[in-house]
């Protein structure tokens, strides 16, 4: 049990942080919405009513979509794009999808390679992009949920203001949808870009995301 916890501590730690943060968001968001409801002379919601509302769904989904977009883009961009000196980048002569030998697929698979890496054909092609496919699918699904929940929440607000609701397609062209989307995207892109550049010159001893402390600034694709 202790070995299991130690060997999976990274995913368990972030899983716990996720659950605690989501619970905290549900309570803070509930109080925030009810303050607005009271100010508008409307009925406050129960916590259950809030966590099943479009207001909560859009706030959750807009962050999920941007996180998965960030990882999907980073995954795809780091196939082709390089950053000299960054441990986030591949070595400077390895841009592209690399050879079968480098990727240990087909005839170059090793004894404990995943079965679909060894088998060749469509299975190996699919498995070669499986991480990006799943990340991209979650991004698209989350963005779709954001658009539907955001549409409902926006229309609820319009009805409170005695205005006609909009259609979903009109909402997709509305500033509310794009403000929610882009405010999340810009922060994700800033964080990823900052990580790629700051890790050239700065170090965190012992982290897999940093170069070793004594590694020269010019070393590319070296992680601790």
């Amino acid at each position: 049990m202790r070995t299991f916890l130690r060997h999976n501590s990274l995913s368990l730690f972030f899983g716990a942080l996720f659950v605690l943060s989501l619970a905290g968001q549900s309570v803070a968001g509930w109080h925030q919405l009810n303050a607005l409801q009271v100010a508008e002379h409307l009925d406050p919601l129960t916590w259950t009513g809030y966590v099943t509302s479009s207001d909560f769904a859009v706030d959750v989904a807009e962050n999920w979509q941007s996180e998965f977009l960030q990882f999907w883009l980073y995954l795809m961009a780091t196939v082709w794009l390089l950053q000299k000196g960054s441990p986030e980048s591949k070595e400077l002569d390895k841009a592209g999808r690399e050879s079968d030998e480098d990727q240990k697929i087909g005839a170059h698979a090793v004894a404990d390679s995943p079965a679909w890496a060894r088998t060749g054909g469509w299975r190996t092609r699919v498995y070669s992009s499986s991480l990006a496919m799943v990340m991209g699918a979650i991004f698209l699904a989350s963005w779709l949920v954001q658009s539907v929940a955001g549409w409902a929440a926006f229309n609820e607000q319009r009805l409170q203001q005695l205005q006609d609701p909009l259609s979903w397609t009109s909402y997709l062209r509305n500033a509310d949808f794009w403000a929610r989307t882009l405010q999340n995207w810009q922060s994700e892109f800033l964080a990823v870009g900052a990580m790629a550049v700051l890790t050239i010159y700065l170090r965190q001893r012992g982290s897999s995301q940093s170069k070793p402390v004594g590694q020269p600034h010019g070393s590319t694709g070296v992680e601790g």
Binding site: A152, A153, N155, E156, Q160, P165
Partner: peptide, 29 residues
């Protein structure tokens, strides 16, 4: 048209706005 706790009902040329209060729909406009 219903969106969460708000609704708009059009009856011919007449428009009514409603909100849910403790499970009941009451008119706000």
């Amino acid at each position: 048209e219903v969106y969460d706790s708000m609704a708009q009902v059009r009856l011919g040329a007449d428009t009514v706005f409603l909100s849910r209060f403790d499970g009941r729909w009451l008119v706000v406009g």
